[in-house]
C-alpha cells in the first residue's frame, strides 16, 4: 500500500453526451481510500453512465479519470485489474454453471490459485450449494449474488455497484452490507448508486446526489453551514435535492 495514490478515484472536468444530449459535464469527483460513496439521483441523471465510465466500459468525451492511480485513457488494462463491477446485468453466461462462470472470469483476470478463490467467493455470497447449477436456473437474486461473486473475485481496490440491492432478499442485502463494510474497513473503496434512501444512508460513508450533470454533496453543505450533519438532516437534504431534480 506504500505506493498507492492518495485517491481511489479522481475525475477532473468529466463530460459525456449521448448524441446531443449532455448527461455529465465538468464533473469533478474524488473518492479517498476506504470511503463508500453512495450516489442518488433521478432516472436519467447519469448515475449508470458515470459508473460505466469508471468501469472503462464507456469513454468520456472530455476530462480525465484515474482509478487507483491509473489513467483510464492511457492505462485501461491496469485500471481494470483494480475495478470490480456489479451492474444491472450479471455478465454471466446462462448455459455455464456458476462455478464455470467464476473460473472463466478468474482466468481472464489471470488469478493464480483460482480454484480456492472461487470457493471462497462462493462461500461469501452463500452460493456454494448451487455452484454447479447453470446460471439459467437461478432466480434474479441468486444471479445478482453470483454477479457480486464475479465482481469481488480478483479482490479489486474499487467496487462499482449500480443499484446492487435490486432483486436481493433481506438475507442477501445483509450479506452485501457486510461485504461492503469489510471492503471499506480494509482500505478499499466503493461507489454505489441506489434509489433506496435508507440503505444508501446505512451503507455510505458519504452521500451525493447527481443532478444537472454534477454531483452535489448535501452532507458537506451542512458541515460548511456549521450544522452538525446528523443523519436526519442529510436524509432531508438528499430528499430535497432529489425532489428538486424531479
Amino acid at each position: 500500500m506504500t505506493t498507492q495514490p492518495t485517491e481511489a478515484i479522481l475525475t477532473r472536468g468529466l463530460a459525456k453526451s449521448f448524441d446531443e444530449w449532455p448527461v455529465l459535464w465538468n464533473l469533478d469527483l474524488s473518492v479517498p481510500w476506504g470511503q463508500s460513496l453512495v450516489l442518488f439521483g433521478a432516472n436519467g441523471t447519469g448515475k449508470t453512465t458515470l459508473l460505466r465510465i469508471l468501469a472503462t466500459h464507456v469513454w468520456a468525451d472530455h476530462g480525465t479519470v484515474a482509478v487507483a492511480g491509473h489513467n483510464l485513457r492511457t492505462n485501461p488494462e491496469y485500471a481494470r485489474r483494480k475495478i470490480g463491477v456489479v451492474g444491472h446485468r450479471s455478465l454471466l453466461y446462462d448455459d455455464l454453471t456458476c462455478r464455470e462462470n467464476l473460473v472463466y472470469y478468474s482466468r481472464l483476470f489471470g488469478l493464480k490459485n483460482h480454484k480456492s478463490r472461487v470457493e471462497e467467493v462462493l462461500e461469501t455470497v452463500k452460493l456454494r450449494d448451487r455452484a454447479d447449477f447453470r446460471v439459467r436456473t437461478f432466480s434474479n437474486g441468486m444471479q445478482k449474488r453470483a454477479s457480486i461473486a464475479r465482481a469481488i473475485l480478483h479482490r479489486p481496490d474499487v467496487l462499482l455497484l449500480d443499484e446492487p440491492e435490486t432483486g436481493l432478499d433481506r438475507e442477501s442485502v445483509s450479506i452485501l452490507g457486510e461485504l461492503l463494510s469489510e471492503w471499506t474497513d480494509s482500505g478499499r473503496s466503493v461507489v454505489m448508486t441506489t434509489h433506496d434512501l435508507d440503505l444508501g444512508m446505512n451503507w455510505g460513508t458519504r452521500v451525493g446526489v447527481l443532478r444537472g450533470g454534477k454531483i452535489n454533496f448535501p452532507d458537506e453543505k451542512l458541515t460548511a453551514c456549521g450544522s452538525k450533519s446528523h443523519d436526519n438532516q442529510i436524509r432531508q437534504a438528499v430528499t430535497d435535492s432529489l425532489e428538486a431534480t424531479g
Binding site: 468501469a55 488494462e77 481494470r80 475495478i83 446485468r89 450479471s90 489471470g110
Partner: peptide
C-alpha cells in the same frame, strides 16, 4: 449474439485483456 444478449461481451471489455 450470445455475448451481447447475456452481457458476456461487456464482461470481456471490463476484463484486463487486450
Amino acid at each position: 449474439v450470445r455475448d451481447q444478449e447475456q452481457g458476456g461481451l461487456e464482461g470481456l471489455l471490463i476484463s484486463p485483456i487486450s
